[in-house]
Simulated scan of single mutants.
Amino acid sequence: MTGKAGNAVQIAYSPCPNDTFVFDAWAHGRVPGAPALDVTFADIDLTNGMAERCELDVLKVSYAVLPWVLEQYALLPCGGALGRGCGPLVLVKDPSLTREPGVEGMEGVDLAGKTVAVPSERSTAYLLFRLWAADVLPDGVGKVVVLPFNEIMPAVRDGRVDAGLVIHEARFTYQDYGLHCLADMGEHWESTTGLPIPLGAIIAKRSLGEERLRELAACARTSVLMAWEDPEVSRPYVRAHAQELDPAVADQHIGLYVNEFTADLGEAGYAAVRGLLTRAAAEGLVPAIASGALNFP
């Protein structure tokens, strides 16, 4: 943790390389004029719960949880994770379930009666999975079970579940577990919408006031820009919290999830978030959000 108790901004984000890379400069007092940070490290399923309980000033959460928290929290236009080619994957052990290379669509894929492990039912990954299933699996999915994301690939490998929905660096390591990619949720989302994939959001309490919210957004953006200006400075912080992740994989992780949308959501970013939540609400997966609820003060 950094900062002095009582006057620091209370923030929670994950120990994943993209978050530590983004917040390194701010967390270590290198962003000029920025308030100190009191940092809690927590995986996104935990920060989603913190947001629903309105516990901390600033949180990295899944975009999927926004419909439940937007009355109390504002979406910051920077610091989060959107992108292209970075969506969750559905993995299987049985290669016969996967489509042949070069074959369009998912004809013949059948998860009816199958058990699929997911990291959370209030995650963007889960929403993308359900939207994909609604489009391409006429017989649906047998059973969904929730497991910590780091337990999903071992569960698929060991036959405890038939398929697993994976996120983060699992995109780069699933073949080490002898697994095969059944479908790329991001690929489906991009091909059907043309929009980037919304993954993780930075939110801040509305009760802090509009001036403070704008200050926090500016600090987050500056921290991102400083990380890009000199990536080597952030390496010790990234490695200290990367949970034994190979440095090369950590670099791939950062390269994939920290991009132009991290510095500024922009028109395409906001369209992606609205599109995800609108589609998910139409499927009954999340409550509908009020008009203007995503607008930044």
Rank of each mutant, 00 (worst) to 15 (best):
E229Q: 12
E215M: 05
R214G: 00
G269E: 07
L245Y: 11
A240H: 14
D246W: 04
L256P: 04
E229F: 05
A217G: 09
I254L: 12
E260C: 10
Y270P: 04
Q243T: 12
Y257T: 10
A268V: 05
T262W: 02
L213V: 01
A220H: 06
L265V: 03
V238P: 14
Q252C: 06
L225F: 01
Y257A: 11
A250D: 05
Q243D: 14
G255Q: 07
A271Q: 08
H253E: 15
L265G: 12
S223G: 07
G266W: 06
A268M: 08
Y237T: 14
R221Q: 10
C219A: 09
A250C: 02
V224I: 08
N259F: 14
G266T: 06
M226F: 01
Y257Q: 12
A268G: 02
D230S: 09
P236D: 06
A240R: 15
V224T: 00
Y237G: 12
A268S: 10
E244V: 07
A248D: 13
D251R: 15
V258G: 03
S223C: 04
G266V: 10
A227K: 12
R221S: 01
R235V: 13
Y257L: 13
C219K: 00
V224F: 10
L213M: 02
D251Y: 06
A250F: 09
A248Y: 11
L256W: 10
A217F: 09
E260Y: 10
P236Q: 07
A242D: 02
R221G: 03
P231F: 02
E267S: 09
R235F: 03
L213S: 00
E215K: 01
R214W: 00
P236R: 06
E229Y: 09
A240W: 13
Y257S: 11
L245E: 12
V258K: 05
A227Q: 14
L225V: 00
E232S: 12
V249H: 07
A268P: 05
E267Q: 11
H253C: 13
F261Q: 10
G269P: 02
I254C: 04
R221L: 04
R221W: 03
D246Q: 08
L216D: 03
Y237R: 13
Y237W: 06
Q243L: 15
T262R: 08
T222V: 03
T262Y: 09
D246N: 12
P247A: 09
L256E: 08
P247V: 02
M226T: 03
A271C: 01
E267I: 10
H253N: 15
A263E: 13
G266P: 08
G269V: 03
A242H: 11
G266K: 08
V233S: 04
A220F: 03
V233K: 06
A271T: 06
D264G: 04
E244R: 14
V224E: 01
R235E: 12
D246R: 13
